[in-house]
Every structure is written in C-alpha cells, then in structure tokens.
Design a protein around this nucleic acid. Structure first.
Lengths: 352, 352
DNA sequence: GGGCGGTTCGTTAGCGCTAACGGAACACGA
DNA sequence: TCGTGTTCCGTTAGCGCTAACGAACCGCCC
C-alpha cells in the first residue's frame, strides 16, 4: 500500500485544537464524535444525517456554545450575506425611518446591514462610500437620498453589485423604490381646491430633489385640471428657515388664499412668518404640508398635511433587494404607495 | 536532481486562475512576476520590498483592479474590522445625528459599521440584536438609546466583546459616553432664574430615560441653589403630545411663570397648549427647551433652548471604542461635553 | 577567500468553513 | 449468492488571505 520505502511516520491528523478560545467546527465534531462535515451538515440543515447523530451534534454545539465564523462561511460560500446602506444628507424624519424599516426587514431576511452614511451630498464622497461598500463585497447597495445628483453618480458607477435607490423619478440602469409623490401632491391640492381656494401657491423643495419635482408636478397638474393659474413655485431647501422666507414672500405678494408647502418643516417656518405678520391661519391663509412628521399635529395651528409611511417604504426597499438578488423576472413595481391626507386645523374655506 | 525514478511529470503549480471573475492575490502575483506573499506585503505596506518590485505589484493591482477579499482577510487576521451599532427606539434628531457622527468617525478609523437598529425598546429584542452582532464577530458593540432598561440588559450580557453605551448615568461594567445633561439643565434653569423667575416648573422626559433624570436633577439642584421651591415635575414621553398635556396642567395650576421643558418636541406641544389657552409666551409664561432641533428657531415664538452637539457625541463614541480596543490604560473620560444656551424669543422677565 | 549580517523574496502552513466525491453498511429482489 | 440501491458519513480539496520561516543574494570586513 505504501508508495514509498520510507517507514510510515505517525501521521498526526491536523485537527486544530481550540487554542485561540473560540470553538471551531472541529471542536464540535470531536466532542460529538463525528467529522466536521457532519457538523456542517447539521448547521446548514442538510439531509443525510441520522436523527440520533443530529442530536449529538446539536448537543455538542450547545455545550460549547459554538457559533460558526461568518468570515469563514463567507469565504467558502463566496457571498458576504450583507447589504450596504448609504444614507446621504441630513438624517431627517423620512430617511431615518425608511432606514429603520429597511434594517428590520433586512435582518428578518437573514441579511446583515453595513452602514455607510454621510452628511455630505457631494458626488465624490458618495462615490467613495459606494467603493467602500463594494470593497466589503456587499451583495447589493441601497441609497436613501432623494437628490438627483446622488442617483446620477450611482448611474455612472459599475460597482459590480445591484444598486437600489429611493427615487420618485425613473432611474435608468438602477433599481428603484419610492412612494407616489405626485399622487400625494394632487391629493393635497385637491383638498385646497375642494375647500374653495383658487389662488394656491406652492413652496417647493430644492431643485435637485426628485420628490420636490414630483410634488411640484402633482400640484401643477391638479391646478390645471381645475383651470387654475399655475404660478412659479417658491423654492426652499426643506428647512424651516426657507419656509419662513417663502412665507414672507407669499404674504408680501398678498394674493394667495392657500399654500401647499412641500414638507412639514418648511410649513412650520411659513406658519411662523404668518404669525409674525399677523396673518391668521387658516382664516386668512390656508396651509397644507407634506410628510406628517410627529410634531405636525402640534404646530400652531395644527398642520393639515399628507402622511407618508416611511417605515413601509424601507421594507419595500428590502423586498426589492430580495427580488433583485433572486433575479425575479417579473418583480412587482414598488413605486406606487400612495400617501394619505390628514386634515387638521391649518386649512379652511377661503374668506375672500 | 530527481529523487524518484519516475519520469518528471509536468507539475502544474496550483495557482488558482481568475476563473470566478474577481481577481485574487495570485492573479496579481502572476502578473507582477512575484509570489503572492510579496503582493500581501505591498498591500499591508510592510518593509522588505524593493521599490521597483513594489511598483510592479502596484501596477498589476491597478491593471486588474484587484481588491483584497475582506472575508479572507478577516479569517487570516482573526478580526472582522467591523463594529456593531444598535440604535434603539425612535430615530429622533439626537440619536440619528449621533449615529451619523459615529459612522463617519468609524470609517475614518478604517472600521466598518454593522447596523442593528430597531424601533422597539424591549429587552428581549435588544438581547437578540446584541446576539446577532456577536455572531457577526464585531469587535465592539455600541448602543445608542438613553433608556435605562437597554443599558440594564447590556449589563447582564456577556457578548464577548466590549460594549459601549451612551448613558448619562454611571454604567458599571460598560464603557460610557455622554454629554453633560445635568450641566445643561442647570444652565437652562439659571437662565430663567436670572430673568427673575421664581416659580419654575419642569416637564420631564420618561422615567426610564437617564437623560431625563439628569436634566431633572440639574433643574432641581439649580432651584435649590437659589432657595426656590422644587415642585414634582410633570412627566412626559418626549413627544409633542405629552408636552401639550403638560402645558394644560401647568396652566390649570396657574402659579408658574416659567417652564423648563426637557426637550424641544415637548416644548412645541406646550407652546401649542399655551396658544390654545390664550396664554402669551413669553409675556405670561416663559418656556425653555432642550436639544435645539433645527425647527426650534421657528416655533411660535422662537424657542429658547439648550443646544447639544450630537454629531460630536457620535465621534466621541468612536474615540472611546478605539480607546477600548487599544486597551488604553488611562483613556479620557468622554462624558463632560457641556451643552450651550441658545436664547430666543420664548423666555423673558416675568410680569408678575 | 571565507564568514557574516542585511535585504529581498519565496515556500509552507494555517485561518474555519463548504462543496464534491467516495466508501462503508445495510436492505432488497433476482 | 450476487448485484443494486439507499442511507449515512468521512476524506479531500479548495475559498483568499496572513504569519512564520528559510533561502538566495548582496556587500563587507578580517
């Protein structure tokens, strides 16, 4: 049997001992009196293991409180089991809650989430973040940021993995999830029109925001549907300060009886401007916001707004990721979740 | 030369080809005409590589656009290079920004962040999140959540890795980071006292919140310092609704000339209640908040509050993590960052 | 000219898993 | 008795890195 004339040396089977502390699969195998492969089989719930053997292995696992090394597993399986998440820009109510929903859904699906968030919206910084995640061999990269630039940057990148973005406009080459901003804006506008308003201004979000564009479009289309004049919107930056400035502008003009503001924070600023100017809301001016942040109900007056379910959006993102990873041929389009009107005290019929 | 009488078979050196697409260290080595170990040396910036060789390797790396596999590296080095982050509870302004700062600092330090956030504050859910992260072999786990219960849960866990929490009270057995909530509350109270107020109520955060307790303590101590009566605080839950309820209570009582509210959201609710009741702020009642969320400047009236730098807190967390991982003997105590008073329009001298 | 220290590099052996294959043991019918 | 399947399990060979060692080569001094 021996293919050499040298004496058979006592070949020590190289079963690594649990020297470094944490037990390995071999430690479990030795304790259970089986091979490490059988342990692997039990771990991965494969067939071909006798019930009694399975039990012994499970017991050994429990006794050693063994847990498989994710690095070794990732290496052998050639997949990391983790998904990259980039949250760019200010951690506002919307993005934060979407990220949270995504996180929960990802864990439920057995994935790990590797975070690469940043305050900056700069293209170069974003590119680096994508690169960092790609280095980590994440299986997909998710971008939560409504800015058109961010999406543009991703479009030009070949990260080697699927890219999923939250975007309310079509994004060629990328997978997309969003809520129906256009529809929400129409609902808001219809509400004002239904109350009898005919001079309705719009305070929009930043020009680079796709959500802002869609809300603007929804407002404009609704106005046109009713034969009302579509003024140029006043452009803000989502923050309360810009809402305040926009409010002063609207009041200086003095013709509007209602304003559709593209988010709740700017609505707050606008309400502030009204109060300063002695303009009563909703008696002299109706105001409707967008998002329904938790504070909106306690603005003065309580803000009528359009509620978005960001957490569900986050879950939609993960669902889309799974579709993409599984290469589903006809995955459902997850861009039609429609926001819901919440009527409070900041809107009423016009008095003039 | 041959030690066998068999003919020399063409021994194929088992250098794995780039069959699976992504290039490996061996591919780089072959292209550069060196051994894979030399590639590793270049990658890890070790000495003992001739400048010319280093150049050739770097060029090969660039040409193949090779990036090392984190899984293989983690396995060989026996460290994952990632840190677990648990953000429990609502993604409010404070925690979200702290998480963001932490994220940026972690990446600057060369670490990856594995996220395990959840809306729930339940102990069991938290325990599972810690477990999930431990399975991932993260090198440390960070908890951002001011609830005492969360910290308590972590105290009882042996995750096998260092645990770092954001907590404004001492946490035996855990590493701790925080801002000086007590000091901030004293500053707020001193401001009101300085204006001449003597009947100052406190609207506190939930009893399980350490921040709430510290702010309460700071208020109470400041009151005592000035010989003022320390009433029992009204307990809220951080949300605007509870601030509204607290406001009604304060107004019904009718003795207070000022209120120190434990956060800005509840302040908003309280302002709302005042407006409803026809009580003018600050003429009839002064209100001061805590946190300085971006919206606070646009409350009606603009809110006087105490500003906290959450992003820096996040960076402090990462600094502490690094101290712990490096096993620094005398790491600095990062619990003394003092908030800053921001005076706006909601506080004034009492008129009675 | 030989010994000796430094620099530069290659060889080998892991890290802890999974995938692929093979082989032993047993049951069954022809 | 002999195949012929099953069922169960072990053996071997990777996955793509790092760590430890050792060999080759250079120049130097005695």
């Amino acid at each position: 049997m021996s293919d050499t004339d040298a004496p058979d040396l006592p070949v020590e089977p190289v079963e690594p001992a649990a020297a470094s502390g944490v037990p390995t699969m071999f430690d479990v195998a030795r304790r259970a009196g089986v091979s490490h492969q059988t342990v692997s089989r039990v771990l991965n719930d494969l067939t071909g293991v006798a019930a009694s053997t399975r039990l012994r292995v499970e017991q050994a696992i429990a006794e050693l409180s063994y847990t498989p090394s994710p690095a070794a597993r990732a290496m052998a399986k050639r997949r990391s089991g983790s998904i990259g998440l980039i949250q760019a820009g200010r951690p506002d109510y919307g993005p934060s809650n979407a990220a949270l929903g995504f996180n929960e859904a990802a864990h439920e699906a057995g994935y790990t989430v590797t975070q690469a968030s940043m305050r900056s919206l700069d293209g170069e910084v974003l590119r680096q973040a994508v690169h960092r995640l790609a280095l980590q061999r994440v299986e997909a990269i998710v971008l939560i940021s409504g800015e058109r630039e961010g999406v543009g940057v991703l479009t030009g990148i070949d990260a080697g993995v699927p890219l999923i973005v939250v975007a309310s406009e079509p994004t060629p080459g990328l997978h997309r999830v969003s809520m129906d901003q256009y529809g929400g804006a129409r609902i808001a506008t219809e509400h004002l029109v239904g109350l009898g308003h005919r001079e309705i201004r719009h305070v929009a979000g930043p020009v680079d925001s796709m959500d802002a564009s869609e809300r603007h479009r929804g407002w404009a289309d609704a106005m046109r549907t009713h034969g009302l004049e579509v003024h140029a919107p006043i452009v803000g930056d989502w923050l309360a300060a810009s809402g305040d400035a926009a409010g002063r502008e609207v009041l200086a003009e003095g013709t509007a009886t209602a304003v559709f503001v593209a988010n709740d924070q700017m609505s707050l600023g606008l309400l502030h401007a009204c109060h300063d100017a002695g303009v009563r809301v909703p008696d002299d001016l109706s105001v409707i916001g967008f998002d329904d942040i938790p504070e909106a109900a306690y603005f003065t007056p309580a803000l009528t707004t359009v509620r978005q379910d960001f957490e569900s959006l986050g879950r939609d993102i993960m669902a889309t990721v799974l579709d993409v990873l599984r290469d589903e041929p006809d995955a459902p389009d997850r861009t039609s979740r429609v926001p819901e009107l919440v009527v409070r005290g900041s809107t009423a019929a016009p008095t003039r």
